[in-house]
Each structure stands twice: as structure tokens, then as C-alpha cells.
Amino acid sequence: MTKIIALDCDGVLLDYNLAYAKAWGRFSGAHPAERDPKAYWHIDRWDVERLAGERLAQFRVLFDEDFWTSVPPIAGAVEACLRLHDHGFELVCVSAIDEHFVGARLKNLRDHGFPIERVFGTGNQPGQQSPKAQVIDKIKPLAFVDDYLPYMRGIRSETHTALILRGPNGSPNIGPGLSAVSSTHADLAAFSEWWLAQA
């Protein structure tokens, strides 16, 4: 029986916040200053303009295939995955990315040396249940690691839910929903160490 661990991507494996700053630099001509290094959301971390209308549409064009193949890894994440993989766990990525960018996401992960061969793109549809719940129910991993508490909604109790508590300022990872999470960790490296100690 395959021992699967499902991992979110942005905020767990890859650093979307750094990639966002790079995209902003391409858009504006200058890398943004860091406003709050402990901010959860990229828009709060960087000193950037709140865009709307045509300028926002122009900025969003930059979030293309090239962008999704060039997001940098979070410190320690590759090594954490290699440790889990070496202990016999199959790692899969379950990301709220649009389906047509799944190939770019997989290439990005493989280029950084992550031992991941499957990426599931769920999109980000609002609702009472996590857009990832259906995929998690289908692949039945032993554990699901994410950094966004609302994405734990609807995950069956058979799967261990591990929440990464990064960026405390403005974090959505608060409130009564925390009590339903199986465990919390500072980052994937901390989860990996904890998980292997339980094995």
C-alpha cells in the first residue's frame, strides 16, 4: 500500500511571496520594499500599490507559464521532502492553481529537485468545502499539509491535517477551525521532523 503525503505548494513548498515581488519588479521597474516581513499575504508584505481596472489586468498578464515555472523554493522544503521520500512516502502536490498551469507547476518543482511526480490543480472556487477536499478524498493520503486553514474544510478525519502557521500578521489561520486541525507546524521542515519521529 502506497504511503502518500499530499502537500500544498505556495507557502509550503514554494515561496509565492518572493515570486510576487519579482513580478511586481517587472511590472513597475523596481523591486518593492518589504513593508512587513511577518505578513501572511503578499499584498501586505510588500510596499506595493493596490491595483484596479486596466492596470490590474496588465499586471495579471505577468502571471503566465514563465511565472509558474520560476517560483523559488521555501528554505528547507526540498530537504524536508527528500527526507520523507527516503522514508518511503510518495509525495504529491495538491495546489489551488488553474488546471492549465499544472504542467508548469510540476516543472517548477522538478527543476528545484523536489521528489514529486504528480500535481493536482483544483482551482480556487469559493464555497463551504475546500476545493481540495475532492482530490484528497480520491487519493486518500495519510497526511495533507497546507498553510491555509479554510482549505482544511471537508477533509475527512482519516487524513491527518497539518497546518503550516507562517506569516502571523493578517493570517487566516485563526479561530475555532484550528481545533479541527490534527497538528500545526512552523514550516514543512518542522512537519517532516515531527512526522518521521511519529513513524
Rank of each mutant, 00 (worst) to 15 (best):
P73I: 02
C93R: 07
G76T: 02
L84R: 07
V78G: 05
A96M: 11
D64H: 07
C93L: 07
H85V: 04
R60M: 06
E90A: 06
H87R: 15
V102H: 03
F101R: 10
L82Y: 08
E90V: 11
A57Y: 03
E90S: 13
L106F: 03
R60Y: 00
V94G: 11
A104K: 00
F63N: 03
W68K: 08
E90N: 07
A57T: 03
V94E: 09
L62T: 02
V92M: 07
G76C: 11
E79T: 10
G88K: 02
H100M: 08
H100V: 10
S95Q: 07
D66F: 10
C81D: 08
L91P: 06
A77P: 01
V78F: 14
F67Y: 13
R105V: 00
L84W: 09
A57M: 07
H100C: 09
L84Y: 00
S70A: 13
K107N: 08
A57G: 07
R83Q: 12
E79S: 13
V102Q: 13
G103P: 01
S95H: 12
H85G: 02
A57W: 03
E99K: 08
R60C: 01
Q58V: 01
P72A: 08
F101K: 04
L106N: 14
P72V: 09
I74G: 03
V61D: 05
F67E: 00
Q58K: 14
W68S: 02
G88P: 13
F59S: 00
A77R: 05
G103Q: 10
L91C: 01
H100R: 14
A104N: 11
V71S: 01
N108Q: 10
I74N: 12
K107M: 09
L109T: 12
F67T: 02
C93K: 03
R83Y: 05
F63W: 05
A96N: 14
I74L: 14
F59V: 00
A75Y: 15
E54K: 07
V78R: 14
L91A: 05
